[in-house]
Amino acid sequence: MIIEPKTSDAPIASIREGLGRRVFPARSTIFAEGEIGTIAYVLLRGDVTIFLRFGTEQQRAVTRLTPPQMFGVHALMAGAQRAATAYTENGCELLAVSESRLKQKLEEADPFLRYWVDYLSKRINDLST
């Protein structure tokens, strides 16, 4: 199934070109807590749940995502380990956003927006440590 963006999905349409589309079958781990984050994702269809301590007795669902939410961004921008596990119960279709693609899009952006994104990224990093 190909999902065409709606007018309100303009940001998704603008990054769709040149991105890898990935499909995960039911009961798949998209990424695991502790892995180095090299890709962020945009959920196109299906379900994704973000878990802390996935697969342990202390497992806790943090959030359930709906299209077109983005996830895995913090680890990608910070070059850090994943703080949680992303899992799909019923399967999902995603757009994969690599670090190089993100940097390319930021270089094309207005200088103020680049500053803003850099500032917010550093601020999130500071609050996460």
Rank of each mutant, 00 (worst) to 15 (best):
R16K: 15
C92M: 10
L113C: 09
I2M: 15
I124M: 01
A10L: 07
V117I: 14
T38Q: 04
D126C: 14
T63Y: 00
H74N: 15
D110C: 07
K6T: 12
H74Y: 11
F51E: 05
P11F: 05
F24Q: 02
A78G: 11
F51H: 13
N90W: 12
E57D: 14
L113N: 02
S100R: 08
A80N: 03
A80G: 02
P25E: 12
T38N: 04
C92W: 13
K103Q: 14
Q69E: 15
R53M: 13
F31R: 00
G18A: 05
G91I: 05
F31V: 09
N90L: 13
I36A: 10
P67A: 02
R114V: 04
M70L: 13
R60S: 05
R21G: 13
F51S: 03
I3V: 08
G18D: 02
N125L: 15
D47A: 02
M77C: 13
R114M: 08
Q59M: 04
I15G: 01
F54M: 07
S128P: 02
I15Q: 01
T85P: 07
A75K: 04
L95M: 01
I30A: 10
I124N: 05
G46M: 00
I3H: 09
R16P: 13
T63R: 07
E57K: 07
D110T: 05
M70V: 10
A78E: 13
R45E: 13
G37A: 06
F71V: 01
M77I: 08
R114A: 09
R101G: 00
T56Q: 06
R21L: 10
G55R: 14
V48M: 02
I12N: 09
A13W: 10
L102R: 04
G18K: 06
R16Q: 15
I2N: 15
E33C: 02
K122R: 15
Q104Y: 02
V97E: 09
Q58V: 11
R27L: 05
E93P: 06
P25H: 09
M70T: 11
L44T: 11
P68E: 05
S128W: 14
A83S: 15
F31Y: 12
R16C: 12
G37C: 09
R64D: 14
F24R: 04
I36P: 09
P5S: 00
G20Q: 14
T38D: 06
P111V: 14
K105N: 13
G37W: 07
D9I: 02
P68S: 03
V48A: 06
F112E: 11
L44Q: 12
T88Q: 00
C92A: 14
P67M: 00
I30C: 02
Q58D: 15
A13I: 02
R45H: 05
V73I: 14
R64G: 10
G34K: 02
P5R: 00
D118L: 07
G72N: 08
A96E: 10
P5A: 00
P5G: 08
A86P: 06
R27V: 01
Q69C: 15
T66F: 03
Q59I: 03
Y87T: 00
L106G: 08
R82H: 06
G46Q: 04
T88S: 14
E33S: 04
S98Y: 08
A32S: 12
T88A: 06
R21S: 03
G91N: 10
P111E: 15
V117M: 05
P25T: 04
Q81T: 11
T29P: 04
M1A: 14
